[in-house]
Amino acid sequence: MGGAVELEQALADALRLLISGDRALWSIIGLSLSVSLRALACAAPLALVTAFALAYLRFPGQRLLVTLFNTLTAVPAVLVGLLLYLLLSARGPAGDLHLLFTPTAMVIGQFLLCLPLLVALAHGTLRDGDRRAWEAALTLGAAPWRALLTVAHELRFGLLAAFIAAFGRIVAEVGCSMMVGGNILYHTRNVTTAIALETSKGAFATGIALGVVLLAVALVLNFALSWLQGNARPAAWA
């Protein structure tokens, strides 16, 4: 019973915090979105081209690469964080860049995290897609990169779903951001590292408020996706 009352209280406090436009809270939310969107924007083109090569070209080691990317989707965020930490720390090979505990380090970490997932999902979409689209584009004289854009357009809903899944993975990860970001308020504190911190402090309201924001982001993305897919149904063509 006590637990339920506490949760109710925390939820009410959370909503009040969100509505009142608490500066620290909104800086945290802003950082989460900006880091994850930047990571996704950097990874998406590279992942698309890689997935494309894996699905449509023939070269030695192709199957091995597919397996590798599929395996890498399961790497824990905290391990990516650890490796990146060792790389960026003052005595690490890339220490001179002074990137540790900056949002850029977090972007790099999330980039590494979402790349294999994007490649694996986009590869699945392209492999299961109609190969005739690629062939028709090429035979009608499209340069390979324009044929790639054509196929990406033809399969845009599947690819968009892959992007949204990847965004969901990185916006919700905590281990890597904590390791290489350092959870510094107004600088590298994002939604997930903040939840971890607030919870350890016993400040459940802030933790829940942040959780609500994460859920809201996910909800908006999924509504956007199903709206787009709904608009593309063949019934709408006739």
Binding site: R132, A133, A136, T139, H153
Partner: peptide, 16 residues
């Protein structure tokens, strides 16, 4: 050959 030699699939592919 691409663009000069045009191939037609048995079942044509229609772009969206």
């Amino acid at each position: 050959c691409r663009g000069r030699h045009v191939y037609l699939h048995q079942t044509p592919y229609m772009f969206d």
